[in-house]
Amino acid sequence: MQIPVINRSRHALPEYQTAHAAGLDVRANLAAPVTLGPLQRALIPTGLFLEIPVGYEMQVRPRSGLAYKHGIGLVNSPGTIDADYRGELQVLLVNLSDQAFVVQDGERIAQLVVARHEVVAWQPVEALSETGRGAGGYGSTGSA
Rank of each mutant, 00 (worst) to 15 (best):
G87L: 05
D98M: 06
R41I: 00
I81M: 13
M58W: 03
L93R: 07
P38W: 06
Y56W: 10
N76W: 02
S97W: 00
F101V: 10
Q17D: 12
A67N: 12
D105A: 08
L50F: 12
G79P: 01
T80G: 00
G47N: 02
P33A: 08
L96V: 04
V94S: 04
E15R: 15
Q17F: 07
P62F: 07
G71R: 05
D98Y: 01
G47Y: 01
I81L: 09
D105L: 12
D84L: 04
T46F: 03
E51K: 08
E51Y: 01
P78A: 06
D105H: 06
L13F: 10
I44E: 09
A21S: 15
E51I: 06
A83K: 06
Q99D: 10
G37I: 02
L24A: 12
P45A: 08
G65E: 15
T18S: 14
L92C: 02
Q59C: 03
I72Y: 00
V94G: 02
V103D: 13
A31N: 10
L48P: 04
G47D: 07
V34L: 12
D98Q: 03
G65P: 13
Q99R: 14
E15C: 09
A32S: 13
I44H: 11
R63G: 05
T46I: 00
V103K: 07
V91L: 03
I52N: 07
D25H: 08
A28M: 07
Q40W: 03
Y68P: 09
K69F: 06
G37E: 09
M58L: 15
V94Q: 06
P33S: 07
F49M: 13
A22K: 04
G73D: 07
L13S: 11
Y16N: 04
A83N: 08
F101A: 06
R86Y: 09
L66R: 02
S97F: 02
P78N: 10
I44N: 02
I72T: 08
E88T: 00
R63D: 13
L66S: 05
R41K: 14
P62W: 07
Q40Y: 00
Y85K: 04
L66D: 11
T46N: 06
P62K: 06
P33Q: 04
H70I: 13
A21P: 09
G55W: 07
L50I: 11
P14H: 09
P53G: 05
S77M: 02
E51D: 13
F101Y: 12
A83L: 02
D82H: 00
A67G: 15
F49H: 10
T18R: 05
Q40I: 00
A42W: 05
P33N: 02
L66V: 15
N29V: 06
L36A: 02
Y56V: 06
A28P: 04
T35P: 09
L48Y: 03
G37T: 00
A42N: 05
M58K: 01
S97E: 03
R86W: 05
G23K: 04
H70Q: 14
R27K: 14
